[in-house]
Simulated scan of single mutants.
Amino acid sequence: MTATTEINNIISEENLVYKKTDVLLDNEMHYCPGCTHGVIHKVIAEVIEEMDIQDKTIGVSPVGCSVLAYNYLDIDWQQAAHGRAPALATATARLMPEKYVFTYQGDGDLASIGCAEIIHACNRGENIVVVFVNNAIYGMTGGQMAPTTLENQVTATSPYGRDCASTGAPMKISEMVSLLPGTRFVTRQSAETAGAVRKLKKAIRKGFENTREKKGLSFIEIVGTCSSGWKLSPTQSNEWMKENMFPYYPLGTLKDE
């Protein structure tokens, strides 16, 4: 056997073996102390491992705090331009319908520059999962006001509090997309307690199961904290979230078909 023949045999498709590893990589995270992203990453990793779909899952992360998500979850990833993750996920899922495709987006990304993309992807009912992290602020770029910023909430660009008379009311994205025919599962969860994490994990798993059954788009909003943007400690952030965000963004499932 020649060296060339031996090499061809090694790299031939039938000899390729996917080497499974832990989905959650042992890398130090760049997220701020108390940030919800780390918990969400762990939950997604656990669901992927338990469903045994590590080699079939593709994540799409756009601009935002989650831009480096590929450093922490050992799956295939694609990088999208700001707000364009649903468009890229649409193409990926249509070209590779056997894959489990999900986007991982913040509120500044999804609800602002990417509002058109998410609305139309939901309306079309693309067979993807959307993980939407809502912390009511632009976390990565300095704590500016986002579409989800609460009324009177202080941010870098609303130092006297959000004035709804000039900026409009905070957008309830889950309520909006739940009205569209293409969404099959729309839920709003959190991750500040063990019980909340268990509910979140159940929701994310249901989203991936919907993808497997070709049911259409699953939209999972997660109300989270941004200690740095809010200028609060992690403990204070959790309390502020419960006192201020939960009443406006109530937890629970809005749609399940």
Rank of each mutant, 00 (worst) to 15 (best):
R205C: 00
Y70H: 13
L88N: 05
P234L: 02
Y72L: 03
Y138F: 12
S166I: 15
A191M: 05
E175T: 04
G64C: 02
T57Y: 02
D76M: 15
M176E: 08
I53Y: 00
L25F: 11
Q144N: 04
T5E: 15
D109I: 13
A194G: 14
W230K: 00
C226G: 02
E175H: 03
M245Q: 14
G224E: 01
A81M: 12
M241P: 04
V133E: 10
G224C: 01
Q236N: 10
P147W: 08
I128P: 02
I48N: 06
A136N: 11
S178M: 12
M245H: 14
T211F: 12
A196K: 03
G106E: 07
S158V: 03
A69M: 12
D55V: 10
R184S: 12
T167K: 08
L251W: 07
K255V: 03
I48C: 07
M245R: 14
R84W: 11
S237M: 00
K201T: 11
I53A: 00
A196D: 10
G252M: 10
M96E: 11
T193D: 01
P33E: 05
R184A: 15
T167E: 07
P147D: 01
Q78V: 13
D55I: 10
T167L: 09
I75D: 08
G114I: 14
A69V: 08
R94H: 12
T157L: 00
M1W: 12
L24R: 11
E213L: 12
L180V: 05
N127Q: 10
V186Q: 05
V67F: 13
G106A: 08
H41K: 07
K20I: 11
Y160Q: 14
G106H: 09
K231E: 09
A156R: 05
G59K: 09
I11L: 11
C226Q: 01
V43W: 00
A85H: 09
L95W: 11
A203S: 04
N210Y: 06
T141E: 12
V67I: 14
K215L: 09
Q54V: 03
L73Q: 07
R84H: 11
I113K: 03
G216H: 05
I113P: 02
A3G: 13
L217P: 03
V130C: 07
A69H: 06
V129P: 06
K242T: 11
N127P: 10
A203K: 02
Q189W: 04
E243A: 14
T225L: 02
K231A: 07
I220L: 06
I137Y: 00
R212T: 00
T235E: 15
E6C: 13
L179D: 14
F219Y: 07
N135D: 10
A87P: 10
P234M: 01
T211I: 15
P159N: 07
T155F: 02
Y31Q: 03
E213C: 08
A156I: 02
A165D: 14
V177F: 06
W230P: 00
T187M: 05
H120T: 15
A203N: 00
C164T: 14
K214D: 15
L16S: 13
